[in-house]
Write a protein that binds this DNA or RNA. Sequence first.
RNA 1: GCGGGUGUGGCGGAAUUGGUAGACGCAAGGGACUUAAAAUCCCUCGGGUUAAUAACCCGUGCCGGUUCGAGUCCGGCCACCCGCACCA
Length: 895
Amino acid sequence: MHKQGLTETRYNHLIAEKKWQILWDKKKFFEISDVDISLPKYYVLEMFPYPSGRIHMGHVRNYTMGDVVARYKRACGFQVLHPMGWDAFGMPAENAAIKNKTDPAKWTYDNIAHMKGQLLKLGFSIDWSREIATCDESYYKQQQSLFIDFYEAGLIKRKKAKVNWDPVDQTVLANEQVIEGRGWRSGVEVEQKELTQWFLTISDYAQELLEDLDTLDQWPTKVRLMQSNWIGRSEGLQIDFIIANKPTDITIDVLRVFTTRHDTLFGASFCAIAANHQLVEQLLNSSYDNINELKNFVATCQQQATTQEALDKAEKIGFFTGIYVLHPFDETKKLPVYVANFVLIEYGTGAIFGCPAHDQRDLDFARKYSLNITPVIQAEKDEEGQEIDLGKAYTRDGLLINSDFLNGLTTEQAREMVAKRLELQTHNNEPVAKRIVHYRLRDWGISRQRYWGCPIPFIHCEECGLLPVRRKDLPIRLPKNVSFEIPGNPLLRDEEWCAVTCHQCGKNAKRETDTCDTFVDSSWYYARFTDPNSNIPTDTQKVNYWLPVDQYIGGIEHAILHLLYSRFFSRAMKKTGHLDCKEPFKGLFTQGMVNHETYFINDNGVPSFFEPAEIYIQQSDGKRHAYTIESDTLVQIGTIEKMSKSKKNTIDPSDIISDYGADTIRWFMLSDSPPEKDIIWTAEGIAAVYRFVQRFWRLMQRSICLSAQDSRGFDTSNVKEIPQESMNILKAAHKILHDYTQALDSLRFNVCVALIYSFTNNFDTYIKEKESDKNLAPAEIAVIDEVVKIMLRIVEPIMPHLTHECWQLTGNETELCLLPWPKVRQDLLIVEEIVMPVQVNGRRRAEIIVAIEATDEDIEHQALEQELVKEAIKGQLIKRVVIVPRRIVNIVVGQ
RNA sequence: GCGGGUGUGGCGGAAUUGGUAGACGCAAGGGACUUAAAAUCCCUCGGGUUAAUAACCCGUGCCGGUUCGAGUCCGGCCACCCGCACCA
């Protein structure tokens, strides 16, 4: 291209993006076929998608961030693993099958094909040769093998337990999948059922999972905290209260309670047990007098709603059993035992002692049943010296009162003293109390009574009992052509599939019909990516080279579920010899959502929503008004919310890619908002980015046109021969390179974007001046060339197609994405002169330009010379002059 | 209730971690080019005093403190957001 012959062209994203995507794919730039374990590695991973059918903006934002990191790290010399796969098992495929009478497998693989096509158009630098879907036989075969290993190592158990049953989805749910008493998918209230289920023994790892959170210094504190709360460690005391008047037919002679407030033991005035406590069960099966009343009460408790509002309003009610227990320090004191609706069987021992003065629930209860309220902690006085409100339980620390030998001790000392004494006290040769650590974390129930999941590789033999399938018989494949017309688990009804011959005794046996929770599938996929075709779950050498994942990126919604399960899985896989790292994700980044405003009309109090595509916006008297395109009806502009089908405020990424291009959408996703915060999608915003894409293209065309002139081999390290203006732009470019690299290292993409905008403005001004200059000096040509190279290289991770297209204009042979990251020239960051603001008593009065080597005396002298400074000082005494090197001058004056 | 976070123009947000608050982008207003539109380019844009793009005053949720100097640190409030929760 020649300067005179230049006619600026518009950048055609449709042609350019297609061209580069084909080339990258053909040259396999992003595939790692032969791993060189002597190279430094970097594993960047984004949470793999569920193949719902279409890519949404959340995916685009997530994978754009990952791609920028991957491209950047490659340029920094790392061997980068950046794979993609599909979390492909799960309910939606089955629901679709029920609705449309399709095969879940076909539905899933069709969706994968479509979504992969969408992802390819975004130009992500993904190693597609490693693509896996969790519903692939080759994947779940290895998962079944892992399952058997875990079983043999005691990491999986089959046990009878109360589980959460979702009556709509007809399956069991893990505790983590129950939100406010409702199934996380179906939204209906879950029921409690006693079933024999498969459990992963995650609770054995509670302490380790908790402690090791401290090592995850590249995780958001928030996520670590959420996990810590979920594991819910509490140190307390388990105390056995001796039953004073044991009724006949009752085998229990002590009531075991758990408490963290044993310092308040002298304030105890009753005990309470859960409605489904063992003692209640025994009473119901005994010759107990009030058996009918008790039955009724238990029924009332079980009907109790578990929603938040209901719990807030629910009255504390109890039923006196007629049983009394002895106070462990004072046998003359007998505490009545109640069945109470606020005591949970799941927590602790399902029984408590109540201390009304220092626990709000106990106080409410005590008031209702006229039980003693004895304060045992001296309440602090408030600011006005008033005793703190007695209507409320005093739950803070303080000094002990009314507590015999504990009087005067602090709460902490009292706890220690109580524990010590009760540990020594015995009943039937057993210590009355034991210090225990209780965790909220329960074992992870993974049985699902569904078809579209990984079959659990076990058989039930009438003779031999429960047996794992032999390895050589793996995988246990899902049956094909299954009917979904009857509700419930199709596997259970498939007699042909269920019937097997026991490999041990040769008799008839039945296949296990439960499948794995899909969270099992996603708990180890990051390990499988390191060698997706291996005929064992992981290739030790490869998995240990690549793991841990250096940067994992995904949504905060997985803070507990997926991330906790994965942390457990890596430990379990370590124990069974499949890999050698405890923590699977070294760095974690949780990105914000993509939001959009909503449009609706009020239809008799019910909002009826419109898609952004159905709406146009007009401005009048400073306000925005929305109208429907179809009929010009005025609609209301609602709140800005997460894009969702129900609010119809979604934008299809594919439409944006065809209208504006992948680079535009990628740039938009990273601009403005910090990556951890939500971003607001606007039509104006995306149009503005597109303007920038065109502007950048024009600027690069013009710059490359200038730099194409002969620079006669000028070397820009000859700084003395570079004219001032060009020197300034070269320095600015290196400063941007420096700042940009720093921002990228800390994933502050929005700052990167702003830096590029800013520098583009400067460079544009500079190029305009140089274009009017007929005879550019070789030094100037060389500077333009260097600046263009830096710009293109650093923008490439975000807008790879556009920058490759520009790079092609320079005539360089090597593809841009293969070039190393530019080195910051430290000599160019050094400034000779600095602008220093001069303050008088902290108020800025003037600015001085000083040489870098200027002494404090020089600076002070120059500062005091300023007219405005003189005026501000006028008549006052200079007390002190603060000079912060390279920053600021502050003159402190006074009378 | 417990735990955590956030608060900066009309909006999204910068601010070298204690050193010129408002970078950059959006929106808005004005202008140039054009028959017109699109596209592009230029200017203004926190509030106030002012002829002024001279200078000064106020200004980072509120009150106070530390400091030569506070958006940044400390104490106390207020508001909003998120997570957990009859957890003993």
